[in-house]
């Protein structure tokens, strides 16, 4: 089943075209990595899909009512805002707002999210006093607690230590394996190659490539989109992709 379908989606912000004719669909079981240089339109693509910025074209999510959309897709913005000194547990429980909150199901979802992001020892701590990486994990847990068929996350692993980066990617991969869909933007091509089932390469507001990591992460495309050379090897533990140098 399709969880998100965008057709001919274009966004113009302050007379500057940001996205141009994006057609994309994400189905159950897919873990889509959204990659592309700074300013390629990754954030705008996800925000437009959610109906948070005005756009032309169609988005299946934006067509839903706000209440229905909040049960269909969870969104973790790039700006890691925590306005008040609430406890980590309270912060994660905010993810249950679209469902009402307070029931057994809600409690179970919060516990599950805390455990998945390894936050149980920090649950009583004040969220605003945690380190940046810990705050990011708490906010990911908040989005997980929303328990939606689709999860959209904007650079969720930026600022996390290597162990938590890998653990977070594994949590997302597991969600996809359970039949949900995950779309996440990220800059770590190595992580993207190892964990995502599919990569979408965005540049200048258009989709440059869309396919398996091996299909997308070719030297030619990396040169075109990022202007870097890339090292690729297949190891016993899976593929290794590493940007090596900036091309002339």
């Amino acid at each position: 089943m399709t969880l998100l379908s965008l057709s001919d989606l274009s966004v113009t912000l302050r007379n500057r075209p940001v996205l141009d004719g994006i057609t994309l669909s994400v189905g159950e079981g897919e873990f889509v990595g959204l990659i592309g240089p700074n300013g390629a339109g990754k954030t705008t693509l996800m925000r437009a899909a959610l109906g948070l910025v005005p756009f032309a074209g169609q988005s299946s999510l934006a067509a839903l009512s706000p209440a229905a959309r909040a049960k269909q897709a969870a969104w973790m913005p790039q700006a890691r805002e925590i306005a008040w000194p609430v406890s980590v547990e309270t912060l994660v429980s905010l993810g249950r707002l679209p469902h009402g909150g307070g029931t057994e199901t809600d409690r179970a979802a919060i516990e599950e999210a805390l455990a998945q992001m390894q936050l149980s020892p920090l649950r009583a701590r004040t969220a605003t006093r945690l380190s940046g990486g810990e705050q990011a994990r708490a906010l990911i847990a908040r989005a997980l607690a929303q328990e939606c068929p689709l999860l959209l996350a904007d650079e969720p692993v930026a600022g996390l230590d290597p162990a938590h980066q890998i653990a977070t990617m594994q949590v997302f991969a597991r969600l996809a394996a359970e039949g949900r869909g995950v779309v996440t933007s990220l800059h770590d091509l190595g992580l993207a190659a190892r964990h995502c089932t599919r990569l979408v390469l965005l540049a200048h507001g258009r989709i440059l490539a869309d396919g398996t990591p091996a299909e997308v992460l070719t030297p030619a495309r990396m040169a075109e989109a990022f202007g870097v050379s890339i090292y690729h090897a297949e190891t016993e533990d899976g593929p290794v992709f590493l940007p090596m140098g900036v091309l002339g």
Partner: peptide, 17 residues
């Protein structure tokens, strides 16, 4: 207001008008 703890973007995506 609770949802706004996470910022306007996240609150909007959580169904807050």
């Amino acid at each position: 207001l609770d949802a706004l703890t996470l910022g306007e973007d996240a609150a909007g995506a959580m169904g807050v008008h």
